[in-house]
């Protein structure tokens, strides 16, 4: 019988997380084991607290300790604008940019013909229900600039059309600080196609 080694077990669990391989996990575990009182036990307590407290917001699908989440409860935000994102990571990225002061809706993925993800696997019905409740003046589609992302955006545009709510999507093109000669041809083609008068 293989003896249970708690250190190896911990390294194995950490190595499954994104951004960490076994080597990085081993370094992190070693650092924690050197100072268990300062680094390990507070981390264990924080992990336990987060696992117990954090849940999905029933309105937008965000992860937060409160339900509805802090964004949905914030009276200072524009409740008439909903920004549709693929996942919570994209929601957090937009929040870091401080560019959107409205609400969000997490779809939980994008349509993927080859990955077998259909509309029923995404939070499309909850989005339609939110819009049917009224008060929504604009829906922003902030979906990835991929074939699956664009397919999902076109699908949502079709589904939202009967509601009569204006639907917009994020622009595609040259990133801030991006020199044209280092951009990939796909981005350049999209940017050129979406050019506008100045």
């Amino acid at each position: 019988m293989i003896e249970h080694d708690p250190v190896e077990h911990l390294i194995g669990l950490l190595a499954k997380l994104p951004g960490l391989g076994r080597r990085s996990a081993r370094r992190a575990v070693l650092r924690m084991l050197m100072q268990p009182e300062q680094a390990m036990l507070p981390l264990a307590a924080a992990l336990r607290d987060a696992a117990a407290a954090v849940r999905r917001c029933r309105l937008c699908g965000n992860l937060d300790a409160r339900d509805p989440c802090g964004i949905c409860r914030d009276p200072n935000r524009d409740h008439g604008v909903i920004c549709v994102v693929e996942g919570v990571a994209e929601l957090w990225a937009l929040e870091r940019a401080h560019a959107h002061r409205g609400l969000y809706h997490v779809l939980g993925g994008t349509l993927s013909a080859l990955g077998g993800i259909g509309p029923e696997d995404l939070a499309v019905q909850p989005l339609l229900a939110r819009i049917a409740e009224g008060g929504v003046e604009e829906v922003i589609l902030a979906l990835p600039a991929t074939v699956d992302g664009a397919t999902t955006a076109h699908y949502l545009t079709d589904r939202l059309k009967p509601a009569g709510v204006p639907v917009t999507r994020l622009a595609q093109g040259v990133p801030m600080g991006g020199a044209l000669d280092v951009l990939d041809e796909g981005t350049l083609a999209a940017a050129l196609k979406a050019r506008r008068a100045v």
Binding site: T146, G186, L188, A190, K193
Partner: peptide, 11 residues
Amino acid sequence: LVHPAAALAME
């Protein structure tokens, strides 16, 4: 990349 068909079709 030779031809960015995906980027050109997305709209």
